[in-house]
């Protein structure tokens, strides 16, 4: 059954599903990174998501912001690396923007993405077009902004579509950040591994909210 909004417990279940999806995608995420970096993006994300699952299972969250922020802190401290810093910031700053919310709806999704994307861009210094996770995140944020009046399940679906389109478009970009930046034009043809993770995160959230 498609969801209009999620309770705190349902938000926990959704993020637990996100963690499972990223853990399952470890080989493809590592392979995506091997084309551009050193091939460990999937491993870091998997380590982070295992910590997230452990944290989520503790329960006791009063509001949805606390769930997202706990997820961000668990990723940041268990992963390290560039991924831990930027993905931890996405969930921590995104969560902060939802302060005190008892439900997660389409308006909350837009707030989460606004706070999270700003945080990621400030921390990492990446702009759209640099061939980073921002190239999936920023289109997702724009899609969410236009979807605030939709039921959550539909808003998440358009957000996930935008993230996936951003991931695919990152194939044609030249890397200017991180370890891939010295590849120059040789980076063309491969999607950014961080953008792949962003697409999986929002597609899994959309699938959960659609009740499938």
């Amino acid at each position: 059954m498609a969801k209009q909004q999620l309770s705190v417990d349902e938000t926990v279940a959704m993020l637990d599903a996100v963690a499972d999806a990223i853990i399952a995608a470890e080989p493809e995420l590592s392979e995506a990174d091997r084309n551009l970096g050193d091939g460990d993006h999937g491993l870091g994300m998997k380590r982070g998501m295992e910590a997230v699952k452990a944290k989520l299972s503790e329960g006791g969250f009063e509001s949805v912001d606390k769930v997202f922020m706990a997820m961000g802190m668990a990723m940041m401290s268990s992963m390290g690396g560039a991924s831990g810093a930027v993905f931890g910031t996405l969930f921590r700053n995104g969560g902060k923007a939802l302060k005190g919310s008892e439900t997660f709806d389409a308006a909350g999704l837009a707030e989460f993405l606004k706070g999270g994307t700003e945080g990621v861009m400030t921390r990492g210094g990446a702009k759209p077009g640099d061939k980073t996770m921002v190239d999936a995140l920023e289109p997702a944020q724009k899609a969410a902004e236009l979807a605030v009046s939709l039921p959550l399940s539909e808003a998440l679906d358009t957000t996930a579509q935008a993230a996936e389109a951003g991931r695919d478009a990152s194939k044609d970009l030249i890397a200017t950040m991180g370890r891939a930046k010295t590849l120059g034009e040789a980076s063309i043809g491969h999607p950014d591994a961080g953008a792949c993770s962003v697409a999986i995160i929002f597609r899994t959230m959309a699938t959960f909210a659609a009740g499938n």
């Binding site: 050193d38 390290g80 690396g81």
Partner: peptide
């Protein structure tokens, strides 16, 4: 000290 080829986290 971070994990293999990964920076240490802020708490470390």
């Amino acid at each position: 000290c971070g994990d293999i080829f990964a920076a240490p986290s802020p708490d470390i």
